[in-house]
């Protein structure tokens, strides 16, 4: 698993190099590959590389989760934009605590980031297995308490 993970990191870095360089001569491609391998090797020696930085285990779940997340983001961004241009600014900010059912730190980060990414809700702090969330409207808070996002992130995490 460890070896497989390292190879995956090398491939990602190499693709990144190719995209940034844009030259496909044999020499430069070889240099790129060598640099990718060296970087991963150094990273191993410095102990800065782990499952969290390159969460390969999520590859299956993410495909199901992201489309739903993007639809959610568009919907809530539209709602927040309507609130902003509303002449009376009808907001009712609340601070609430949401339980999260994720087991791994990666899953928790994913959930917290998803909350922040959807406009209208921001994860402020994590305390135990609860996230302190600031919501712009009561409706947004109710949506979150409904727990659909939590369920989907957990499902995405569990698919690993």
């Amino acid at each position: 698993m460890q070896r497989f993970h390292s190879i995956s990191v090398v491939i990602s870095l190499f693709v990144f190099w190719l995209v940034l360089s844009g030259y496909f001569t044999p020499f430069l491609v070889t240099v790129g590959l060598a640099v990718s391998v060296l970087v991963v090797w150094f990273a191993h020696r410095m102990d800065v590389i782990d499952q969290e930085g390159h969460p390969l285990q999520l590859r299956g779940g993410v495909v199901h989760y992201w489309p739903w997340l993007i639809v959610e983001i568009v919907k809530s961004a539209w709602t927040v934009s309507r609130l902003i241009v509303h002449p009376r600014l009808p907001i009712s900010p609340t601070l609430l605590r949401v339980k999260m059912s994720q087991r791994t730190p990666v899953g928790q980060v994913m959930y917290a980031n998803s909350i922040t990414l959807t406009p209208g809700t921001i994860s402020v702090a994590i305390e135990g297995d609860e996230i302190v969330v600031h919501a712009l409207t009561q409706a947004g808070a109710d949506d979150l308490v409904g727990g659909e996002m939590d369920r989907r992130v957990s499902a995405c995490e569990g698919r690993a």
């Binding site: 983001i73 568009v74 961004a77 539209w78 927040v80 934009s81 902003i84 922040t116 990414l117 959807t118 406009p119 209208g120 809700t121 921001i122 600031h134 712009l136």
Partner: peptide
């Protein structure tokens, strides 16, 4: 912050 995240996302 909620308003700023509209810029960042949509």
């Amino acid at each position: 912050m909620h308003a700023a995240s509209v810029i960042d996302t949509l």
